[in-house]
Design a protein around this nucleic acid. Structure first.
Lengths: 145, 145
DNA sequence: GTACATTTGTTGCAGATGCAACTAATAATT
DNA sequence: AATTATTAGTTGCATCTGCAACAAATGTAC
């Protein structure tokens, strides 16, 4: 590939990602959902199924354990979840959503879908699917170097 | 598009972007280039042409002025650039690279290209070009809502 | 079964981010 | 010319990030 096009790839990816995240933050705020985009990513996983240890969360988020610790601190402080100590392995906690935490799911997902629809506006289903595969390919390339 | 596929789009984009940024941080460190990925993005613009006011930098980076202020603080502290007060408009500074700042260009760009090559490994030029257009399309969608 | 290693989560540190409030300087209105 | 925007840059606050060092619990090896 032309080396002059290789240089700005990071910029293009960074711009697309930044705009997407900002748009999500905006949508969540508009909808009155008290979550930042990063908190949303954590909650998204918890809504799919509670009781993951924090290290699994970190892995799934591509973040380190320390970052997960602190996002959970905030979410616990704000009453969206609780850490429950695990009897089987006392190093770990089970994360359990509160009623409040569970209640935000629908609205938050609607915000997320609105962002995606803005992002993909004007693309056919086929073009969007090709774009998805492109991103998945990149992820795979980084995960198996 | 199938609503179940609309939900994880942010996650896919986030993963690809995160892995790319982490890989760049790693490459820069390996090559002994004293820049974080965010600092690299700023320097990239300055290498193309000095003397931009900070607000233009912010616009180009999709960041707010405050963020640019603080990245420049760090880069100035580390001797990569200097703020020169502008006689014509005393609100602004001209950012000027130091010799040290200019000297990092080649190595840093090589790191960036290595990251891109990893990202795009296994894709044809045509597929990569389609991926670029996909990302550009998303950027355009967010910029003209 | 004791010593060593690994794993889980936390904290300290330096770097980023957006938003809102602020100062100083320039532009626009009247 | 004087008042009123508007613009460029900075600072405070809350959030988020990775890395490295650490404690406590669990696993492994001898």
């Amino acid at each position: 590939m032309n080396p002059f096009q290789l240089i700005p790839f990071g910029k293009v990816m960074g711009s697309a990602h930044t705009l997407l995240v900002k748009n999500l933050a905006h949508q969540l705020k508009q909808a009155g959902v008290p979550l930042t985009p990063d908190q949303y990513r954590v909650m998204m996983i918890l809504w799919e199924g509670d009781s993951l240890p924090q290290c699994k969360l970190a892995e799934s988020l591509e973040r380190d354990r320390a970052s997960v610790t602190r996002i959970l601190d905030t979410l616990e402080r704000d009453g969206l979840l609780v850490r429950v100590s695990n009897a089987a392995d006392r190093r770990m906690f089970s994360i359990e959503l509160t009623e409040l935490g569970r209640s935000l799911r629908l609205k938050a997902i609607q915000c997320s879908m609105a962002v995606t629809q803005t992002a993909l506006r004007g693309l056919t289903e086929e073009e969007a699917a090709i774009g998805f595969r492109f991103l998945h390919h990149i992820i795979k390339n980084f995960k198996q170097p």
